[in-house]
């Protein structure tokens, strides 16, 4: 195996090397492909560490071969695996551990972390960011969008850094630490918060549509004979509720796609508007 490192060399990684690996791990999904998934990104991220740990070219190549096997997890939580791999590779390079432990670690963690990350980040925190951003954009314009971005990335970047750090410090123990953060408990509350933001946005956009859609003095004049805003808002809500009913059936296989729902909602509203 890879126990060819000369005993004179202390196989630990410096801070600069760790920083380089972390920086490169942000690009773990580069060249994502159906055959190896994130393997090219992972190998690219780990390369500076291999250069430091394995001065022998053959050992370095062997380490690279181990990490070119198919790999896929959530891009944020991948930081924990990358950190953990560094922890284990240091020990492998020192000859304290068989190299197969690294493979086992990766293949054991990537599935659960992918499920956790998809459920929490992609399906809960990201919608919450989006819903908050539209609400703030409605009130404050681009400043609101920047506030939402800052909030999201304060959580996202600090978590990625902490996951990397926890992985590097604890190696195989990182799963217990992640489990202690209770992502699963916060999931439903975050989603319900997004629903509340969406509801509030829908109400506000109906109450103040002129400011939102028609900058004063632009475009064709509003017709004198148009129905009262209450009537047209009520009609728009009717179309929206229709869309809600159609989207509810989205779970069944023969349900209309989101694109079809949106486009037909627009077409119905346009036709009704012409008839008024």
């Amino acid at each position: 195996m890879n126990q060819t490192t000369p005993p004179t060399r202390p196989a630990t990684l410096g801070l600069a090397c760790l920083a380089r690996v972390f920086w490169r791990s942000l690009a773990i999904q580069t060249a994502w492909n159906p055959a190896g998934m994130q393997n090219l990104g992972l190998a690219h991220a780990l390369w500076p560490a291999f250069e430091a740990l394995y001065p022998d070219a053959a050992a370095r190549r062997e380490a690279l071969r181990r990490h070119l096997t198919p790999f896929n997890t959530h891009p944020y939580l991948a930081a924990a695996i990358v950190g953990g791999v560094l922890h284990l590779e240091e020990r492998v390079a020192r000859g304290e551990m068989p190299a197969s432990r690294v493979d086992t670690f990766k293949s054991l963690l990537m599935g659960p972390l992918a499920a956790l990350g998809d459920g929490f980040f992609w399906r809960s925190l990201r919608p919450a960011f989006g819903a908050l951003a539209i609400l703030l954009a409605f009130g404050l314009g681009i400043v609101g969008v920047l506030i939402a971005l800052a909030l999201y990335n304060a959580v996202h970047l600090s978590l990625r850094l902490r996951l990397f750090d926890a992985g590097y410090r604890h190696g195989e123990g990182v799963l217990d630490i992640i489990a202690r953060w209770r992502f699963d408990k916060r999931r439903d509350a975050t989603r319900r918060l997004s629903a509340a933001f969406v509801g509030a946005f829908a109400a506000l956009v109906s109450l103040a549509p002129p400011a939102f859609f028609c900058a004063p003095g632009k475009g064709l004049p509003v017709p004198e004979s148009s129905p009262s805003p209450v009537v047209s808002t009520a009609l728009a809500w009717l179309v929206g509720l229709l869309a809600l009913t159609a989207a509810r059936a989205n779970a069944s296989p023969k349900a209309p796609s989101a694109t079809a729902i949106l486009v037909s909602a627009g077409a119905i509203a346009f036709y009704v508007g012409l008839l008024l």
Binding site: P209, C214, L220, S232, V239, G240, G266, A269
Partner: peptide, 10 residues
Amino acid sequence: ARASDLTALA
């Protein structure tokens, strides 16, 4: 004009 206003909101 009226129809497009309604469409945008809907």
